[in-house]
Amino acid sequence: MLDLNFTASANPSTFILMGIPGLEDMHIWISIPFFSMYVVALIANSVILLIIKTETVLHEPMFYFLSMLAITDLILSTSTLPKILGIFWFNFHEINFHACLTQMFFIHAFSGVESGLLVAMALDRYVAICNPLRHSSILTNAVVGQVGIVTLLRGLVLMTPHPFLVRKWPYCRTNVVPHTYCEHMAVVKLACADISINTLYSLAVIILTVRTDVTCIFLSYVLILRTVFSLPSKDARWKTLSTCGSHVCVILTFYIPALFSFLTHRFSRHIPHHTHILLANMYLLVPPMLNPIIYGIRTKQIRECAAQLFMTKIS
């Protein structure tokens, strides 16, 4: 049982993460797929990074962006899963106040970074298909590095106000967070203050980021499709489109769980709370697990390099 005793203070020393309210008796069973997905995410993303680092044939923009995506996925999953498993396996519900703010910052900041990287990868596909002769001159290593830095800075800067806003409010009701991790709105709702500024800023950042990123991706693919369907051969059209298949799958893997989590959390009062929590966890668990698998299966260069690396290791 959780200790619900709480002394009012501006900043509590700890928060208590409940886990999944209403499914406490199922925590040990839920931990099995969660742990499995985390292990797959760690191994698959690490293998992707190792392959890209060691195989010089993969030292090109698409794979540089893929390595950035793998690092982001490792940060996202590692910022949440160890603590979640601690709750499920050992009843380690307490989290230090500042550790909670740090976790909150990493989750939201690197979710924004991942969204930005999907835009960068769409840009790479656009240049590769619509301007193939200028691809290497447009997306140089310097440009790829600059795009990565801008994407990182955007995520960090936009999410920096979140922990500072959470820190400024007094907490006099309870320190029990009905969630598996320190999700921004789940924490700030515990404050004894008008949290309108948190709600409005969070909503504005989400709308600005997602709308901008989705619009850029959409426009990129409109231009890509226009170029593809102007090709004379059906085989050429199919071969060109197939180079975008992995990226499209990764986009759907990231945005669909995020969209469901966002919509159910903010606009549906009839969905059980544990469903909200499970969807929020899927949003952080599924993309890091599936992204490297999708690229590993669908990208010929990665498959061949992985097979070569594996055969070298066992020989």
Rank of each mutant, 00 (worst) to 15 (best):
G148Q: 00
V157Q: 00
G245Y: 13
R134D: 10
C192G: 05
P170M: 10
L290T: 13
I217K: 03
T180K: 03
T227L: 06
E60N: 03
F90I: 08
G19I: 06
F260E: 09
N198E: 07
H98N: 04
E304T: 12
V250D: 09
L279H: 03
Y295R: 06
P21C: 06
G116M: 11
E94N: 10
R269A: 13
C172P: 00
A120G: 02
T264V: 15
W29K: 05
A193G: 11
K234L: 14
V248G: 00
S111I: 14
L252P: 00
L279R: 02
V286D: 04
S115Q: 12
F6I: 11
I87E: 01
P12K: 14
L42V: 10
T56I: 06
K189N: 11
G145F: 08
M121V: 02
R266C: 10
I195V: 13
F254A: 12
T209C: 04
P257H: 10
P21T: 06
K234M: 11
E55W: 04
I87P: 00
S77P: 02
H273N: 12
G145M: 08
F106E: 00
G22S: 09
R134H: 13
H98Q: 05
S31F: 14
L225M: 13
T243K: 14
L225N: 08
C192W: 11
V127S: 03
L153G: 00
H108L: 13
L2I: 15
I206H: 02
L231R: 11
A204Q: 02
E60K: 09
S13E: 14
F90E: 09
A8M: 08
F92V: 06
V250Y: 02
L74D: 11
I293Y: 07
T7K: 12
T78A: 10
G148I: 03
R266E: 13
F97N: 02
T212Q: 03
K53L: 00
S230R: 15
S46M: 01
S46A: 04
E183N: 13
P272V: 15
F262C: 10
L74V: 09
V143W: 09
Q308C: 07
F15V: 08
L225D: 05
K83E: 07
T14V: 15
V127H: 07
A191Y: 09
I206W: 08
L156G: 00
R173A: 13
G296T: 04
Y181S: 13
F229V: 14
L252I: 15
N91A: 08
R154M: 03
M289G: 02
G145V: 02
I251V: 12
I302V: 11
L219V: 12
G22E: 08
I302F: 01
Q146H: 07
P33N: 08
V166T: 11
T180H: 03
Y64G: 01
S77M: 13
C130H: 08
C100Q: 04
M26H: 10
L76P: 00
T264F: 15
V119W: 05
T253S: 11
V39E: 00
V143G: 02
S242I: 02
L200G: 01
K300H: 11
S137I: 14
I48R: 00
C305Q: 11
V205N: 01
T253W: 05
G296V: 03
I206T: 05
I302E: 01
K234H: 15
N5P: 02
L165V: 07
M68N: 10
H27T: 03
A186S: 13
R173S: 12
F92A: 06
I314C: 03
